[in-house]
């Protein structure tokens, strides 16, 4: 067994009387692709927002690379090497594609408070290289907001990669994508895992995507872990199939 990069212990998050995530234990192995699936309202996004520090857990602990990060602020968690791309496209729309990546490199290099140097100019080559990896190098000079939806998602991945993450967290990376764009994103995730030895934790609706690339799958339903195992184990689980048949996506 490889080392566990991210471990959740009894993570619970409630909003008033409503318990969105309830007692979730989950371990992500270093170097693996781990999927979190579940019907709408299962608590996937809430769980991710707790991990990234956007929300504080009501109860439980989040341990990343051996350090308790529960309740720490987003930017502090990001600096520890946990990078994310959100469910809704989130970029710097009026910065150029290149600058989107450069901003991430500057931040990672702890030079973001530097008012006097030309440091970010020296990041150009690395930023272009990041863009090449996701196939966007030829769009470097465009404003991020004019890119197509699929390209914007790809740029998000480039921005996330530019922070040199140990774990990439993706909340529904293919949401709103055409089948063609989805295929490109899946290929990109598989490639990154292969080339960068990146650990990926993602949530997803599309079952083809999930079973196509995941090493491990965790099924959430009504805020609880319903099943957890390899892709094949989960696919063979009757209870999981019942949830999906009972609440088709």
């Amino acid at each position: 067994m490889a080392e566990t990069l991210l471990q959740l212990y009894d993570v619970t998050r409630s909003f008033g009387p409503f318990v969105a995530v309830s007692g979730v234990d989950l371990g992500v192995e270093a170097g693996s692709i781990h999927a979190v699936i579940g019907p709408n309202g299962a608590g996937k996004t809430t769980l991710f927002r707790v991990i990234t520090g956007v929300l504080r857990p009501t109860r439980g602990r989040v341990v990343f690379a051996g350090e308790d990060i529960s309740g720490k602020r987003t930017h502090a968690i990001a600096r520890r090497g946990l990078s994310q791309s959100a469910q809704i496209t989130s970029l710097f729309p009026r910065l150029s594609v290149l600058e989107n990546v450069q901003a991430a490199i500057v931040s990672r290099s702890r030079r973001s408070s530097d008012v006097a140097s030309w440091f970010h100019w020296s990041t150009r080559a690395e930023a272009i290289e990041m863009l090449e990896r996701v196939g966007l190098a030829s769009s470097a000079g465009l404003e991020a907001k004019v890119l197509s939806h699929g390209d914007q998602r790809a740029l998000e991945v480039a921005v996330a990669l530019a922070t040199r993450p140990r774990l990439l967290l993706m909340d529904e990376p293919t949401a709103g994508m055409s089948p063609f764009e989805t295929e490109a994103m899946v290929a990109l995730i598989a490639k990154l895992r292969h080339e960068e030895n990146l650990t990926v934790l993602f949530s997803e609706h599309d079952m083809d995507v999930v079973f196509g690339i995941s090493d491990r799958v965790t099924v959430l339903a009504q805020g609880r872990v319903l099943a957890d195992g390899t892709a094949n184990e989960v696919r063979a689980n009757d209870e999981v199939m019942a949830v999906y048949l009972g609440a088709p996506e």
């Binding site: 990234t52 956007v54 602020r73 987003t74 930017h75 990001a78 600096r79 990078s83 994310q84 959100a86 989130s90 970029l91 710097f92 729309p93 009026r94 910065l95 600058e99 989107n100 450069q102 901003a103 991430a104 500057v106 931040s107 990672r108 030079r111 973001s112 408070s113 530097d114 008012v115 006097a116 140097s117 030309w118 440091f119 970010h120 921005v159 996330a160 530019a162 922070t163």
Partner: peptide, 29 residues
Amino acid sequence: WKITVSPFGLVLRATRENRERAEAIGVNV
């Protein structure tokens, strides 16, 4: 002018564009 074209200037524009995203790349907004 130098400040606006510094690394800080770039990150400052990034915080203007998207505060949450800036935090997600590790910037203390």
